[in-house]
Amino acid sequence: GYVFVVDLILCGAGSMDLISCTIAAFAGRGDEVLGTSYAYNFAASAAARVGAAYIKAAEHDFTVSTDSILAAVTPATRIVFVCNPGNPTGTGIRNAELLRLRAALAQDVLLVIDQAYGEFDDQDPGPIFALVARGDTVVLRTLSKAYGLAGARVGWGVFPPSVAAEVRKMQNSNQVTMASLAMAVAAVEDQAYMR
């Protein structure tokens, strides 16, 4: 039983559009987007499109390091982008490390947790989704992986309302087709098949 005051956004292009729109809404020239050595590289491309620098914090054994991320934060850091489980490494960190990271970051630094492979993680996702209610964290998911709907290109994210309002300004309003939406609804309603 969690209760959240958050917004859910659906998007086309898996979660790629949400990554791109979030970075465009909250970073620009002179800003930094901080990722990790082996994180999904699309975040670097999205940062480059808006003129923000993409900085890579070191990973240890292909695994995200909270300490490395915190050591790489500067006054120019606007977004910290973390893939957990890692994409493409498949490694993961415990929820406690993500909670520690969020607690140590300044409130004006947006934490984006990309959980494209979240269904393959045995941890309870509740504590990570609960971070969104703080107003400074976004959690992204996709139906492209565990649900097998890569061709449908449907991603989703959980956003604080104020963040969602800015991200929606960057989105194409006609991006999820009716066929893709029908497939997404059917897939989500059949959790037994997905498992």
Rank of each mutant, 00 (worst) to 15 (best):
A72H: 09
F42L: 09
V64Q: 07
A71Q: 12
K56M: 12
L70S: 05
F62A: 10
A72I: 01
K56A: 12
A39K: 14
S45T: 14
A44H: 11
D61R: 13
Y40A: 11
N41L: 08
A47K: 00
A52N: 05
I69G: 05
V50R: 04
A52M: 07
S45A: 09
K56V: 07
T63E: 05
H60V: 15
D67E: 14
I55Y: 03
D67S: 12
A47N: 03
I55T: 01
I69S: 04
V64H: 05
A44G: 13
A43Q: 10
A44F: 11
S45D: 09
A57C: 10
D67Y: 10
F62Y: 13
A52C: 09
T74S: 04
D61S: 14
R49I: 06
V50P: 08
A39D: 12
A53Q: 10
F62Q: 11
A58Y: 15
A46L: 02
V50G: 05
I69T: 05
V73L: 00
A46R: 03
A47M: 07
S65I: 06
S65T: 08
A53T: 14
R49D: 15
S65W: 12
A43D: 10
F62H: 13
D61C: 03
V73Y: 00
S65K: 11
N41C: 06
F62E: 11
I55L: 00
H60K: 12
T63D: 01
D61Y: 11
L70M: 10
A52L: 06
V73P: 02
G51E: 04
A53K: 08
A43N: 09
